[in-house]
Design a protein around this nucleic acid. Structure first.
Lengths: 142, 142
DNA sequence: ATGCTTATTGAAAAATATTATCAATAAGGA
DNA sequence: TCCTTATTGATAATATTTTTCAATAAGCAT
């Protein structure tokens, strides 16, 4: 199911603002801050206000159409890749974002944590940071 | 080495503000926001300004005396537990924080990610969320 | 196509969170 | 005890996110 039907089925409307945002996020490799999204759309001629960017990010995120990731500096950035349960690798240099599945290996770790801490584990936050292939090339010449 | 010497050796001074903050963070099970720290210290009679809380959190964090964690809502909170490379489990209900070591199991996962994404992985962000033992008890009566 | 209902938008303002400035104070070595 | 300089508090400046509200537009029913 494409994102439009997903939104429609959830009772949301398909607006220009949402189309522009989805197009941008889908076609951008790097994770973008709300401000960057706003700026990029403005440069494309969009009149959309920053407020709508925030509001729609919330809607899109709620419907699993975009993910929030933490940039290396701790700030929030958004990206459209990835379906189902997955995680992200972010390039520390250019914020290029890739997704991957597989945190099954956690089962053992979670058991150990629960034994050690007496917590009941219910969820996790996992991201990797590194260098994308492009930035690795440039890194050589440092 | 206790935290005072650690700071001293790094060229920082031991001030009332820093002592109050360390005492508070060491004796508090839950992760605290800058605001909560400021409020708690004010209630103890401290005159410390919120600005100093922020500044000293930065200093203490830089010296690995406190850790920043992400609360379930994405906001930053601080806790003093844990030495060396470690991670945290946070209670979603009360923000109780426990630390654990062991992300060795990541070696395989990282190799897989690097193969899949062409990234060179250099670091990671990992936290678990769940219920602490106290909150599990209360959960039963929901 | 047309009208109606209501979600959505933009603009401005409010609320929050964080950082910078600078004179006054205090830590800690001489 | 003095001196140097990191640290502090108060204020202001930035940055970030949310709220409010009238105007607009999406999409269903006609």
């Amino acid at each position: 199911m494409d994102w439009k039907n997903k939104l429609r089925n959830a009772g949301y409307r398909i607006t220009d603002a949402r189309e522009q945002m989805m197009d941008l996020l889908i076609n951008t490799q790097t994770a973008l801050s709300p401000m960057q999204i706003h700026k990029a759309l403005a440069e494309q001629g969009s009149q959309m206000g920053l407020v709508s960017v925030y509001r729609n990010l919330a809607v899109l995120q709620e419907n699993d159409l975009v993910c929030m990731v933490f940039a290396p500096d701790g700030s929030a950035a958004y990206t459209a890749g990835g379906i189902g349960h997955h995680h992200h690798v972010l390039c520390q240099r250019c914020l290029n974002s890739a997704s991957f599945e597989g945190c099954e290996g956690f089962a053992d770790l979670i058991q150990e944590i629960e034994a050690q801490t007496q917590f009941k584990v219910q969820g996790h936050l996992l991201q990797f940071y590194g260098l994308c292939s492009e930035c690795q090339k440039n890194e050589i010449h440092v």
